[in-house]
Simulated assay, not measured.
Amino acid sequence: MPDLGDAVDMSTFSQILEMDEDENEREFSKPLVFGFFEQAEETFEKMDKALEEKNLNELSALGHFLKGSSATLGFNKVRDSCQVIQQYGHRLNVDGTPETDEAVCLRRITDALKTVKVDFEEVQKSLKKFFGGETNGT
Rank of each mutant, 00 (worst) to 15 (best):
N76W: 04
E122V: 15
M1Q: 13
R107A: 12
S69H: 02
F37S: 07
S70E: 04
G89C: 04
K49F: 02
M10S: 15
E53V: 05
C105N: 07
M19Y: 05
R91H: 12
T110C: 14
L32G: 10
F75K: 08
V33F: 00
K117Q: 14
M47E: 10
S29W: 02
V123I: 01
T135L: 05
E42G: 13
Q87T: 14
E99L: 04
L32M: 09
D22L: 09
Q86M: 15
K128V: 05
M1W: 02
P31Q: 03
G35L: 03
T72N: 09
F37V: 13
K46N: 07
R107L: 11
E41F: 00
T110N: 09
Q39M: 13
E99M: 06
T115W: 00
E18G: 07
R91F: 03
N55L: 04
G137A: 07
G35H: 06
E52F: 09
M19E: 07
K128H: 03
G89H: 05
L17H: 08
V123D: 02
E27N: 11
E18H: 01
T72S: 12
V33R: 01
E121T: 06
F34C: 12
F120V: 14
D48F: 00
F131C: 07
L4A: 10
S81Q: 14
N55P: 09
M1H: 15
L62H: 01
M1C: 10
D22V: 05
G68P: 05
F120D: 15
E134R: 12
H64T: 11
V94H: 06
D22P: 10
S69R: 04
K67M: 01
S81C: 08
S29C: 05
Q15Y: 08
F37M: 02
K54N: 13
Q83E: 15
D6P: 13
D20F: 04
E52V: 11
A50V: 03
V116A: 01
E41S: 06
Q86V: 09
D22Q: 11
L17Y: 02
E99T: 03
T115N: 14
L127A: 10
V118W: 04
C82P: 01
H90V: 13
G133Q: 06
T100Q: 08
E38I: 01
